[in-house]
Amino acid sequence: MEFLKLPKRTTGDRSYGLTSIADFGTPVGRLISILDDYSHIIDIAKMGIGSAYITPNIQQKIDLYKEYQIKPYCGGTLFEKCYQQNKITEYLAYLKKLGIEWIEVSNGTLDIPLEERLTIIERAKEDFHVIAEVGSKDCDLDMSISEWQEEIQIFLEAGCEYVITEGRDSGTSGIYEKSGQIKSELIDELIKGIDPKKIIFEAPTAKHQMFFINQIGPNVNLGNVKLDDVLTLEAQRNGLRSETFYLEEQNANYINQAPAH
C-alpha cells in the first residue's frame, strides 16, 4: 500500500533518471540474487576498467544483464587499451560477438585527440549506441569550464546518446577535486547550457549522489554506482534520507517535474 507523497520517478525503459552501476567482477551467483531484487532500479551496467576482457564467464554475465533489461557495456579503459594497441577493429568485432550494443569512447588514461575520438564515434555509431566520456583520470589535469562545455556539446552533436563526466570510482578526479570535493561551479555551468538528461554524472559515493539529486533532481543520471548501493540511491532519489528529505517540497527543477517515461 502506497500512502506517501514522493518525487515522481521515471520508470521502465527510461531515457533519463538512469542508474548506471559499475561491476568490478561480481560473481554471477551473487549477481543473480541482486538482480532478482533490484533490477528494476538499474538501467546500465558498466563492466569496470578492463575487467570484461579477463572475466571467464563474460558471455553469461552479459546475457544475464540483458535478461533483466539492463544495458551492459565495457568500461572506457578497455577501449583505450585497444586504441593504444591499434585494435579498434578487433574490439568492435569482440563487442558484436558478445551481443553488447553500447560502447564507451573515452580518453581518461590516454590523451586521444578529439578528432580521432569523433572519427571512432562516427564509425561505431553504425552498429552501437555510443557513450562518450569527458574528463581525465589524472587529478592534476584540469579542464576549463568552457572546455568541458564544448566537448560535451560536440559529442552530443556527433550522435552520442549520452556523455559521461569523469569522476573515477574514487570520486577524486574530473568533476571532483583530489579531496573528493565536488566542483560545484563546474556543475552549475554545465547544466545551464546542456540538457542534463543527456549527461551521466559519475557519483560513486552517497555524498556525491545526494549533491546531484538535490542540485538537479531525483531523475538525474548517475554513474559508477556500486551494486550494493542501488537501493540506498533509490531511497535518496525518493526523499527517504535525511539529506534529501525535503526533495518533494522543493520540487524546483524541471527534471523533478518531468513525467514518467
Rank of each mutant, 00 (worst) to 15 (best):
E2C: 13
F3Q: 08
L4I: 12
L6I: 15
K8T: 15
T11V: 15
G12S: 15
D13A: 14
L18W: 08
T19W: 01
I21M: 03
G25Y: 12
T26A: 05
R30T: 11
R30F: 14
I34M: 08
D36C: 14
D36W: 13
D37P: 05
S39P: 11
S39Q: 12
I42G: 00
D43C: 15
A45F: 07
G48E: 11
I49T: 10
A52D: 07
I54E: 11
P56E: 13
N57R: 14
N57S: 13
N57M: 13
K61H: 08
D63E: 15
D63N: 14
E67N: 08
E67F: 11
I70M: 06
Y73D: 07
G76Y: 09
T77G: 03
E80D: 07
Y83A: 09
Q84M: 13
K87D: 09
E90H: 05
E90F: 11
Y91D: 02
Y91R: 04
L95P: 02
K97M: 12
L98P: 02
E101P: 08
W102E: 07
V105T: 07
V105F: 06
T109Q: 08
T109L: 15
T109D: 05
L110I: 15
L110H: 00
L110R: 03
L110E: 05
I120G: 00
E122H: 09
E122G: 05
R123C: 01
A124M: 00
K125A: 03
V134K: 02
V134S: 03
G135K: 01
D138E: 06
D138S: 09
C139H: 05
M143G: 01
S146P: 04
E150Y: 03
I154G: 04
F155M: 02
L156V: 12
E157G: 08
C160Q: 06
C160K: 00
E161M: 15
I164H: 01
T165F: 06
E166R: 00
E166K: 01
R168Y: 00
D169E: 10
S170V: 08
T172G: 07
S173Y: 09
G174I: 11
I175Q: 04
S179T: 15
S179M: 12
I182C: 09
I187T: 08
G193Q: 13
D195M: 11
K198R: 10
K198G: 02
I200T: 03
E202R: 05
A203C: 11
T205V: 12
T205E: 09
A206Q: 05
K207T: 13
K207C: 07
I213C: 09
N214T: 12
N214G: 09
N214C: 08
Q215R: 15
I216F: 02
I216Y: 07
G217N: 03
P218C: 04
N219G: 04
N221S: 06
L222W: 00
G223C: 03
L227V: 12
L231A: 10
E234Y: 09
E234P: 12
A235T: 12
Q236D: 10
Q236N: 13
R237T: 13
N238S: 11
G239K: 01
R241L: 14
T244E: 09
E249F: 08
A252S: 10
N253C: 10
Y254Q: 06
N256Y: 10
A258H: 02
P259K: 01
H261D: 08
